[in-house]
Amino acid sequence: MSESGRSYYAYGRTWRGHPGTRHDTSFTSGLVREVRLAKHSRYKCEYQRRCARFRDSLGLQEDVFFPERDMCYCPSCHEERRDIEIYQRGNPTKPYVLPLGWSRFTLKVPLPQVKLPRGGTVAAFDSWQMCFHGTLRDNVKPIVETGGLRRPGDDISGGTLSQRNGHYNEEWKPEGFDTLQVFVSPSIRYSSKDAYSSPYTWRDRTGQMYKVRSAFQARIRPGSYSIGPTTLHHVRRDERIDPIYKNNEIEWSTKHVDAIMLYGLLIKIEPCS
């Protein structure tokens, strides 16, 4: 199915059980392998199967995913769907550029830990705008277990969220700039920069080494965030990061963590040279 139609009805829970229900995981290791092989076989694309193997290495619970809505944006799958690259989403609308080159593993909406205000899931898919949040491999599980994105200084599973080097922090920022916010972007190109989504070296079961990046696809509530310029170091004045979004509008920030609804884990894999 293309990205053109509304999809929030696919996330209904009446026929899938309560989102807080945990599946029985008391399998033998051999049965786990069989289940995973059967699960991966539904993917037509080898790229998505490889991304799924990496996702499985993260130790996430199966019941946070909604596999019927997984989507591969590799060149072959995108061409086969005859999909366009840019849509309009939200109210007011903003461009949504497909995350080409990535594979999306859809999360249940919302995650069990999250209660959406103001109309819930249907309202979010009707009017909230698309955005992305690049993150490190080691942060994926704490974010999912917490139920959403958090601000620097907030408690997450396993510790406290800290500020990373490479973009504005308390030691390097314009005077008066508040770094204790959640930062997202309408651009996957921007969200996959090293300062947000540093590549992780991973060996597939085939023995091949890959560089892997991870990010989240999300919806953000209109009016809840500020639009601003890049906060990254080392971005030249003449460097256009994304052809759709200008550098002075490529970073969105908010202190309202409940204004962001995660609905997809994105993975991008490239062979190590």
Rank of each mutant, 00 (worst) to 15 (best):
C77G: 07
F125Y: 04
G5A: 14
Y200V: 01
I244D: 05
V35G: 09
N139D: 09
K193H: 13
T135A: 01
E270L: 07
T179R: 07
K173F: 12
R81V: 04
G59M: 08
Y73Q: 01
G166W: 04
C272Q: 15
F132E: 01
V212Q: 02
G166S: 07
I156H: 07
S103I: 03
L60P: 00
P19C: 05
D178L: 11
A123Q: 06
E145S: 06
D63V: 06
T106H: 01
V109G: 01
G207D: 12
S197H: 00
D155I: 13
K268V: 03
L31P: 00
S127W: 00
A38P: 06
H78A: 05
C51M: 03
C77L: 08
P67L: 07
P92S: 06
K44H: 15
T21D: 07
L266H: 03
I260G: 05
T254N: 08
L31E: 09
D194N: 14
G12D: 15
T231C: 15
Y210S: 05
V212P: 02
P110K: 00
K268E: 05
L37H: 14
L98S: 10
P222K: 04
K108D: 08
S197V: 05
Y225E: 05
S26D: 15
I86K: 11
V97F: 07
A124H: 00
P222A: 09
S253L: 03
R240L: 13
S76D: 13
G147E: 10
G101F: 06
D204A: 14
R151H: 10
G101P: 06
H133S: 02
N139S: 10
P271C: 01
R203Q: 15
K268D: 01
R33V: 08
T230E: 07
D194C: 09
P152Q: 12
Q48T: 07
Y73N: 03
L58N: 03
R69G: 04
C51I: 04
S187R: 07
L107F: 02
G148R: 00
Q113C: 09
R42D: 14
V109T: 04
F177N: 05
R81K: 15
I188K: 06
Y263D: 03
N139A: 13
D242T: 11
R203V: 14
N139G: 04
W15K: 13
S26W: 12
G148I: 01
P186R: 00
E68K: 12
G12L: 13
S4F: 14
K255H: 14
P92F: 06
F65I: 07
N169S: 13
P95F: 02
T201G: 12
F65C: 04
N91I: 11
E175Q: 14
R81H: 10
S253R: 02
R237S: 11
W172E: 09
H234T: 15
T121K: 05
E249P: 03
Y43N: 02
G264N: 02
M1C: 11
W252R: 04
N247C: 10
K108S: 10
V182C: 06
R205S: 15
F54K: 04
L98G: 03
S7D: 10
V257K: 09
R150F: 03
C131M: 02
F216L: 04
F27V: 07
N247M: 10
G134H: 00
T201K: 15
H18W: 08
R189F: 12
